[in-house]
Simulated scan of single mutants.
Amino acid sequence: MSLEKLDVGTLKKSGYMKQKQKDLFVVRLRMPCGNVTCEQLAGISEIAKKYGTGYIHITTRQGIQIPNVDIHNLDAITKELEDNGTPPGSCGPRVRNILSCPGNLECNYGIIDTYGMGGMLDREFFGEDMPVKIKFAVTGCPNACAKPQENDLGAMGILKPAIYTQDCTGCGTCTFMCPEKAIVVEDDKAKIIWDKCNLCGACVGACPSDLITEEWKGYRLFVGGKIGKHPKLGRELVDAKSPQEAIAIFRKIINWSKKNTHVGERFGDCIDRVGFETFRKEILG
């Protein structure tokens, strides 16, 4: 069936958003983690010239959209975008484009492979029909540049350090490297104050004698965040030790949301209505 024969609501779910001008649409592209090749970018440019008015918009969620596309050209632009490797994306009550920071592939502070995690989330959840829009964000460390606490579902890289105190000389170098002041020297031995430690991993490699190492690293999962008219920060749910474990927990959450979230009710508001502890037990019980 031709796209121009579909209703506006159905088109929106697939990334075609009706503009205020008659018969014109914005076409939003699928772009997990905001990554696009130079060749794809050049292709998008040519497609925007051909079917739009020669410019594109960079969205706040690391995506690209082409405005001013006539409804009669939706089938043609879709075919060219798919051939370009940048197909139309998702809008409306579905899982939206996956957002992430560069993670440990590029950033000095990155703990996890955010592109890898983002790709897994994209393959598992992108475009899935929901009672309301669901936004994911993946960030590489507790600096939280990708703002996982401001999204419905978020994952943050964390690293638990270990100190071999028996060989520690108490030089104090590590205390200066900890941004949270979570390391102190007591009785000439370095000690981690776990209530202050945010698992950023900055202390690993800071010891001149290499006595601080990685015990484990994983993913801290957040739920229920949003921005907009009534913003709220997401809450910590649980720590996962592997991307597979994190994906499995997110799958439980997505399925739970389908059963419990009212149409149009943001996920965080649903959690508040049901009760966070009830939600937590049903997901992790």
Rank of each mutant, 00 (worst) to 15 (best):
T10G: 01
T10F: 06
L11Q: 01
Q19Y: 08
K20E: 13
Q21L: 13
Q21A: 14
K22V: 09
D23M: 02
L29Y: 05
E39T: 15
Q40S: 05
A42W: 14
G43N: 08
G43C: 03
I47Q: 10
K49M: 15
Y51I: 00
Y51T: 05
G52I: 00
T53N: 12
G54K: 00
G63P: 04
G63K: 02
P67H: 00
P67A: 04
D70S: 04
D70E: 01
L74K: 01
T78K: 14
K79N: 12
K79S: 13
G85K: 00
P87D: 02
P88H: 13
S90A: 12
R96M: 04
C101W: 03
P102C: 06
N104I: 07
L105E: 13
L105M: 09
L105Q: 15
C107D: 09
N108G: 11
G110I: 10
D113T: 09
T114V: 08
G116D: 01
G118N: 01
G119I: 02
L121N: 03
L121R: 02
D122Y: 12
E124V: 07
E124I: 01
E124C: 07
F126D: 05
V132K: 10
V132Q: 10
K135I: 11
A137R: 05
V138K: 00
P142S: 08
N143G: 02
A144C: 03
M156C: 06
G157Y: 11
K160N: 09
P161M: 04
A162Y: 10
I163H: 01
Y164A: 14
Q166D: 12
D167R: 07
D167N: 08
P179S: 08
A182N: 01
A182H: 08
A182D: 01
E186K: 15
K189H: 08
K189A: 10
A190V: 07
K191S: 12
I192G: 06
D195Q: 12
G205Q: 05
P208W: 00
S209M: 11
K217R: 13
F222S: 05
G224F: 12
P231L: 04
L237Y: 09
V238F: 08
V238L: 09
E245N: 06
I247L: 10
F250V: 13
F250T: 04
K252C: 05
I253H: 03
K258D: 00
N260H: 14
T261V: 15
T261K: 08
G268C: 10
F276E: 06
